[in-house]
């Protein structure tokens, strides 16, 4: 009997693959699939009073979400902030990676390590340090005041959308550097020389050859920045104030202070769906863009 099992096992590659994956699969089921299923089911319940929940399945919470203009506007704001953060990160990280990939001859690794140096401290500490920099009595304002450039502290720096954008951009930039650098580094320099040889100017070579060939890295960077920032909770909570509040802060409130778990679960599900949709759109349009450029 045991021998028969062994024979079956050694013949089936699938069985081997699953047994290698089983610890990870177990973990994913435990911490991902089960909580997701719980969240989905909670979103179909109704909070009757503080302590009482009606378990009759209903779609009403999703309708509630779209009827509350605050929630919809927070969803739009979350996506907008995240979009701006992604764009700024890409625009700043791409030239840096381009420079390291094509112009740095020695010690490329050292450059990358130095660039990621700020990211060796915890995310929370980095958010707090921005609080010190941007605050009313912060580094930025006291310098400007001391230099006599302004007479009153700039208040929009703190507890605003701008503050959230600045902090998130800095907090996630390193994650954009690596996929961009890898995709640029992989480009054989002879492609660039060949394009020059075929009559294109340096500028045209970038748009016709270098950029299209680096698109996998660009998509990677977009997704790696967009997905975590759209649902970020810490930065808007610490830096954003009321102005910079995002949907995730509201979801947290539904599970806590407001105590409307079903509506919180529905909001989280809607947010998740939005992220999945945007990811799909980004992947599709960049693929189309590659074809258009060439």
């Amino acid at each position: 009997m045991f021998q028969a099992w062994r024979n079956l096992y050694s013949k089936s590659d699938n069985a081997k693959a699953y047994s290698l994956l089983s610890p990870a699969l177990f973990l994913i089921i435990l911490v991902m699939l089960i909580p997701m299923a719980l969240m989905l089911s909670f979103s179909s319940f109704t909070q009757v009073s503080m302590m009482e929940i009606d378990f009759t399945p209903t779609f009403q919470r999703y309708i509630d979400f779209f009827e509350k203009s605050l929630l919809v506007s927070l969803l739009i704001k979350s996506v907008k902030i995240s979009f701006i953060v992604t764009l700024i990160t890409l625009l700043t990280a791409y030239p840096v990676c381009y420079y390291i990939a094509f112009y740095v001859k020695k010690n490329k690794m050292l450059w990358l390590v130095l660039l990621t140096l700020p990211f060796w401290t915890s995310y929370l500490l980095r958010v707090f340090s921005w609080k010190i920099i941007l605050g009313t009595k912060g580094v930025f304002n006291s310098t400007l005041l001391g230099a006599g450039i302004i007479s009153e502290p700039l208040t929009f720096l703190m507890y605003s959308e701008e503050a959230v954008i600045i902090t998130l951009t800095h907090a996630w930039a390193a994650f954009a550097l690596l996929p961009l650098y890898v995709s640029l580094e992989k480009i054989d320099f002879s492609y660039i020389e060949a394009a020059r040889d075929l009559g294109l100017s340096k500028f045209e070579v970038f748009w016709k050859v270098t950029f299209p060939l680096s698109l996998p890295g660009v998509i990677g960077a977009i997704l790696i920045i967009f997905i975590p920032t759209v649902g970020d909770y810490v930065t808007p909570a610490l830096i954003g104030g009321t102005e910079g509040r995002m949907l995730s802060n509201m979801i947290q409130a539904y599970f806590g202070k407001i105590n409307n778990i079903p509506l919180g679960a529905a909001s989280a599900t809607i947010m998740l769906t939005t992220v999945i949709l945007i990811t799909a759109i980004v992947s599709y349009t960049t693929k189309r863009l590659t074809q258009r450029l060439s």
Binding site: D188, S190, D197, L198
Partner: peptide
């Protein structure tokens, strides 16, 4: 510069653009 010269080159690794 290369784009202004009356020459064209066949590269050792051919450098055929992979995305087109």
């Amino acid at each position: 510069p290369p784009d202004k010269r009356p020459t064209n080159m066949v590269f050792q690794n051919y450098a055929i653009f992979p995305h087109i």
